[in-house]
Amino acid sequence: MVNPAACPFCEIIAGDDASARLMYRSQEVTAFFPLEPATRGHTLVVPNRHAAELTDLTASEARDLGEAVLKTAQAIRSALAPEGLNVIQSTGAAATQTVPHVHFHLVPRWSGDRMTLHWPAGAAEDDQSQTRTLAVIQAALCGEQTTVEAEDRRQHLSFIQAVVTRMSQASSASKSWLLPLVTVTYGYAITSKSFFVALLGCLAVLVFGLLDANYLKQERAFRKLYDEVAAGRPIPAFSMNPALASPVGTRVNYWPDWPDVRSWAVAPVYGPLLLAGLGVAGWLLCR
């Protein structure tokens, strides 16, 4: 924490720096030229109360500062007619803040001036990571991390549980549909001695197996979301996006993963049926 008495901006606000080129000073805000302006008309706008970072401002101070920034920008545009204008605010050393007193740079711009700003190419996060980052910030913005009522959380959990139940029912239904289908297909292949019908039955097993594995994957994803919501993690209220429960940077794969395929609910059911179909097809091929 910097002592306001040692702050160069506080000295300017107090009128103790005779070399300062003061533009104006109100009860709340002061505007002045920096020691080494980057361009013609480069101006700093600061709150009169010493606040080290932007987040230290009160709501009223932020309003006063915002109005002063707008007023100063309009004056600069009117007086100097620049081709453009940068409004820059840096908070923290990592953001290049060198004076620990909140300040906004208003930098008039002309083509070919000596001011340079470079943004990195490409996105810092992929689409799914951006979605999760957005959700976390929105939750903090709305104060949901501390204001979610117990009843709202219970309702959110019930919504997620309904999806888990639906995925489980869909998995059961896929098995119920497949068993008579493969029975008819394999039986017809044997009685009619049709190798291709046996392969058709094998294909049906593969398709239903993939569907069932995907149902299992979705069920696991929503169960993880359930655990995150139950633990009070920063998940937006009533969000049904299971990707929010995954670590930032995790890539979304819409195909079943190997653990889903070899699960006891999938491999022991569809594996023997597929082997039986292949056995029938092999027997018919060798006849």
Rank of each mutant, 00 (worst) to 15 (best):
R154Y: 07
V87C: 13
G143K: 04
R132V: 08
P37Q: 06
F196V: 08
L203S: 13
S246E: 03
L199V: 10
W283Q: 03
L199Q: 03
T250H: 01
L179W: 10
G92Q: 13
T185R: 09
E149G: 09
A213W: 09
K71W: 12
P180Y: 13
H105S: 04
S172C: 09
L134C: 13
G41I: 10
P242T: 08
A237M: 13
A170M: 14
L278V: 03
N253T: 04
A38R: 00
V207E: 10
G92F: 15
W177G: 14
L284Q: 00
G209E: 04
V148K: 00
H105P: 03
T98E: 13
T43H: 05
I235R: 01
L65A: 12
S263N: 05
F32K: 04
A14W: 10
D126S: 01
G201Q: 04
K71S: 06
V184I: 15
Q218T: 01
L106K: 00
Y188L: 14
Y270M: 02
Y254M: 07
V197K: 07
A94I: 12
S158D: 03
D212V: 14
A38T: 05
Q27R: 15
L106F: 11
A14C: 05
S111Q: 06
A140F: 13
P259T: 05
S111V: 11
V148Y: 07
E53L: 15
C202V: 12
T72M: 10
L206E: 01
S171K: 11
F222Q: 00
A162F: 08
T250G: 04
V107G: 04
A124F: 10
H156A: 01
T98M: 08
K193F: 13
I160D: 01
S174Q: 14
Q145F: 12
M1Y: 11
D260M: 04
V87G: 13
I160M: 05
L85M: 06
V207W: 14
